[in-house]
Design a binder for these strands. Structure first.
Lengths: 191, 191
DNA sequence: GGAAGCATGTAAAGTGTTACATGATTTT
DNA sequence: AAAATCATGTAACACTTTACATGCTTCC
């Protein structure tokens, strides 16, 4: 029974010291460390229960005063599963599913100026995302680095660099589209 | 009742001349034009039916001999909905959900050489994807361009450029990780 | 006559999101 | 006393994927 990526996410976070459902939620909200595999609160608790049933996690009650809390930890099986996943030779192909680029694919339905405006909106979106990665996610990663974790900051930087690249790429596309005049030009294009 | 991205995908393809469910499937298989919003055969037929119920599409029987076929076309409502979507000022944030980058986020659990190997696998994956975009998807887009469609090739090129960029970015990360020696170095790092 | 392609669908399971629901404790 | 935070969950819905199911037509 193969685990899904969100299961490994939970496994990895428990292994990293986020031992309760709430701690996992808070870590995700605060650090946005798993930006490349989002999950929501409603998935965490069922997933923890499922991983315990399947023998990857074990749990003990760990109340603070009268406030309940359940503390999870990896079983040897869970440990093995996480490491095997990290070491697996095959990495599934990247899937990026983006409504913005889907719109762009249909931009032939728009007049040229409106197509350019659409590209401009996509560029603005990437600029905003780049800012967010640079100013919020990377600094949090740098804070975690003090605790010996170097990869959160690495993926934050990759995210920041990606969006910066995308913004530039879209700016180039805007320029290219603007360069093509509305009236057909006397062949200035190579054959 | 807002339509979902896959609905607009279908609407856009019908508008582009793929008037039957099978034609849509074939176009997707052959051109892989909507790489940034994948869909499967099992979604197409229910979606066509749903869009007709909701008044965005109309259909007529269009058999070839005794072989049945249902031909769809956009109603004025469908036309308006598609154009409004393309013109909408707000573009939802890009979501990229990638198991590979999720693994990288947890690479602190691996010894350095294995972490480097993981980055290497991710790089190889991007190189492969770049090749696929460059050698397969872009040429198909260029063929479509003859028919007046210029944006399929644009998104193919964006995909190719993205993966090429990613491969280079990951190669830089490999080098960076390799540069850090196993034993702690006498502070060659700025404060 | 058989294989490949054309054509349309369904069933079931898996996966994920939004909104709701509850209650204790700590801080202001 | 109220607000914020800690803590755990459920219900309903939305969406996607995998696998299955059927039958005709054209080409070899």
């Amino acid at each position: 029974v193969a685990l899904k990526p969100s299961s490994y996410l939970i496994l990895g976070l428990v292994r990293g010291g986020m031992t309760s459902g709430y701690a996992i939620k808070r870590f995700i909200d605060e650090t946005r460390m798993p930006v490349f595999w989002a999950t929501t609160l409603a998935q965490i608790y069922p997933e923890l229960a499922h991983l315990e049933d399947a023998g990857y996690l074990s749990s003990t009650d760990d109340p603070h005063g009268a406030r309940q809390r359940r503390a999870y930890s990896l079983t040897p099986t869970g440990e093995r599963a996480l490491m095997a996943w990290l070491r697996r030779a095959q990495v599934p192909p990247m899937e990026l599913r983006d409504e913005g680029l889907l719109r762009l694919a249909f931009a032939d339905n728009l007049p040229r100026d409106e197509a350019i405006a659409l590209v401009g909106r996509l560029r603005a979106r990437s600029e905003e995302a780049a800012r967010e990665f640079r100013d919020e996610i990377v600094p949090i990663g740098e804070a975690l680095r003090a605790g010996g974790l170097r990869f959160p900051v690495v993926i934050g930087q990759i995210g920041a660099d990606y969006h910066a690249w995308a913004a530039e790429r879209l700016r180039a596309l805007e320029a290219e589209l603007q360069g093509e005049s509305g009236e057909p030009v006397r062949e200035s294009r190579r054959p």
